[in-house]
Design a protein around this nucleic acid. Structure first.
Lengths: 141, 141
DNA sequence: ATTTATTTTCAAAAAGTTTTGAAAATTCGA
DNA sequence: TCGAATTTTCAAAACTTTTTGAAAATAAAT
């Protein structure tokens, strides 16, 4: 298999993979492209390579930056912005886990704290099952 | 807070939570409802409680069964099927991790094996970055 | 064998999400 | 300060996923 074909396949399946993990296809594809690119790329490079619109490219690059997975690189003497992805995969995974904790798990745990305090007789099996379920989920956090 | 309100809130946020994890809202809501229900429920119980259609209920119960998170319970002398969820949250988490590995990670790793064998000069930085990225992702699996 | 209860299927509709592209805003150099 | 390059925004369009509901299939009782 040639490099170009391999790259296309990698980008395409990384995109599909992402959609199973709450990450949209384009965001995952841009990330994949930057992961396998030795040098930083511009917005136009990414648009051309992935054949997507300027708006879409821009929004998803910003999102990757918010997630801490991509950083803006300013090359001396260049007006355009360049972008590059963190290449250490362990760091990438740790960063994703950290962000998802902050964005999704913590708000859920806060809700569970409130829900655990539901009124009612603990001998009522409906109340008991509810409270027990909530507490055991909280223990995961 | 009253039990009923707490239950509604739990179901609703579990549903929203699920959508960030590649699980559809209804499937997550049914799962939440069964988690906090002390006794098994019928399809009609679930339809009424969540206010969703019969088809939707049926499909998502089947899906939960495929994922190994819910089981069908036959009560003696009852014609209807009842459903109940695994209550041990650790078992639930382990089961979800196991299924996602099987469904998503393994196919991705298989592809990576093929991609690692891309042709080309390893001294070319494009080839090198590609191969290195693929290998380091493989190490996660 | 027929009726009735129950479950399953699936095409079409509804809802939700992503993408586009053109206009607005911003940035930088002359 | 002005003009060109670049980035950002966002309403509308395209696409994707989910949901509905009625019909078909199945299972059980009489």
């Amino acid at each position: 298999m040639k490099l170009h074909e391999g790259k296309q396949q990698f980008i395409s399946s990384w995109g599909a993979f992402g959609t199973h993990w709450g990450i949209n296809r384009t965001m995952a594809q841009i990330h994949a492209l930057l992961l396998v690119s030795p040098d930083p790329l511009t917005q136009d490079d990414i648009m051309d390579e992935l054949d997507i619109s300027r708006g879409n490219t821009n929004m998803n690059i910003r999102e990757l930056i918010n997630w801490g997975l991509v950083e803006r690189v300013l090359l001396p003497g260049e007006r355009k912005e360049y972008f590059s992805a963190e290449k250490d995969i362990w760091k990438v995974v740790k960063q994703i886990v950290k962000e998802r904790k902050k964005r999704e798990l913590e708000p859920m745990l806060q809700l569970l704290d409130k829900l655990e305090a539901v009124e009612g007789d603990k001998k009522d099996k409906h109340v008991k099952t509810f409270v027990d379920t909530i507490s055991s989920i909280k223990k995961l956090g």
